[in-house]
């Protein structure tokens, strides 16, 4: 039976800064952050993604939905996995894709961000996928694009990486179903992680049973309890009775900044080894947004082990990004939009 989708009410002059994500009728137009989406939009994105994941199981993995549209990947910061899965998602929707690696191009020649934007708009782009090292970059672009253009945030600074969090939620839902009885632990560099921030918003929106973060004091943001999480500094305590373990990538710069004594020390205390994994529930699933540092935050045999869904997260990322792209491109259209 078709379940009727009830559109959340967005006041026209909403005081919240996330209102920019919606068109005048309250339909999702830009995806900049998880905040403001609410459980209904998140669920609609995950349900739509189910349809697209079934497409990627077929021999011809393409649907004609976005034929004639142009998606531009604007990457001001280098990325392999995120950019290629966005590219593949757009191609599987039959859109044309342009990849601009701006870390090495126009901006280095002194062109302003807005000038770059206007030039690409002049190429009749319909969607920008933006990755930038500064928080708020995608918002800035969304405020300045032409009315028919949608903007997707593919990671901005320490702020947000919404599609990664959505694909994680999608992967958890496929394995565990309902979120309400689940205990989820996010482990590692919470403080510098846009992925962790978005995951906390998604999981809280979906009413997860209990959300934990496990990390040394130096890698926990000061106001993290406000996001509705329990803080642990000890793996044995933090992993007890956990259904889902999300490991985060530890960047080497953190050691240089003096936040951690050494990689070895971090691995000994927080690295997910087979021994530590046994402290969680026996059917706990192991996730990592990638790229994983084997021997720094995760043991190889755990990353490749039977409880790991790391590669499945990558494949699911394509279906989830197809869902976000086609939903955002439905904005400013007729009755379904």
């Amino acid at each position: 039976m078709a379940v009727k989708f009830v559109r959340p009410k967005i006041p026209k002059f909403a005081p919240d800064p996330w209102a920019i994500q919606f068109d005048e009728k309250g339909h999702l137009r830009h995806l900049l952050t998880i905040e403001g989406l609410g459980p209904q939009w998140i669920t609609r994105i995950l349900d739509t993604a189910e349809g697209f994941v079934s497409v990627t199981d077929r021999e011809i993995k393409k649907v004609p939905l976005l034929r004639g549209r142009t998606v531009v990947n604007l990457f001001f910061e280098s990325s392999t996995r995120t950019r290629t899965t966005f590219e593949l998602a757009a191609k599987r929707l039959s859109a044309d894709v342009l990849n601009l690696n701006l870390a090495t191009s126009a901006t280095k020649k002194g062109e302003s961000l807005l000038d770059t934007l206007r030039n690409i708009e002049a190429m009749q782009a319909d969607m920008f996928v933006v990755r930038h090292e500064q928080s708020g970059a995608a918002h800035f672009i969304a405020r300045h694009v032409a009315p028919h253009v949608s903007v997707l945030n593919a990671g901005d600074g320490w702020h947000s990486h919404p599609t990664q969090a959505l694909l994680d939620a999608f992967t958890i839902r496929r394995h565990k179903g309902d979120f309400t009885p689940l205990r989820v632990a996010i482990v590692g560099d919470i403080r510098h992680s846009r992925v962790a921030r978005s995951q906390m918003h998604v999981l809280n929106s979906l009413n997860v049973g209990e959300l934990r973060v496990i990390a040394p004091r130096t890698l926990i943001p000061t106001d993290v309890e406000k996001l509705g999480v329990r803080v642990f500094h000890d793996m044995r305590e933090g992993l007890r009775d956990v259904d889902v373990i999300i490991m985060l990538r530890l960047q080497r710069e953190r050691m240089e900044a003096g936040l951690l004594p050494s990689e070895e020390e971090f691995y000994r205390l927080y690295g997910l080894t087979e021994e530590k994994l046994a402290w969680a529930k026996p059917d706990a699933m192991v996730m990592h947004p990638g790229p994983a540092n084997r021997g720094v935050e995760i043991e190889s045999s755990v990353a490749d082990g039977p409880q790991s869904v790391i590669l499945e997260q990558v494949s699911n990322g394509i279906g989830v990004r197809m869902a976000v792209m086609s939903l955002c491109m439905s904005a400013n259209r007729g009755e379904n939009a």
């Binding site: 009727k4 189910e50 497409v55 939905l65 086609s326 259209r333 379904n336």
Partner: peptide, 14 residues
Amino acid sequence: DFNTLGLHPQVSPS
């Protein structure tokens, strides 16, 4: 009718 109506709400996948 995607251009005029946008994406239809999902039923179940093929």
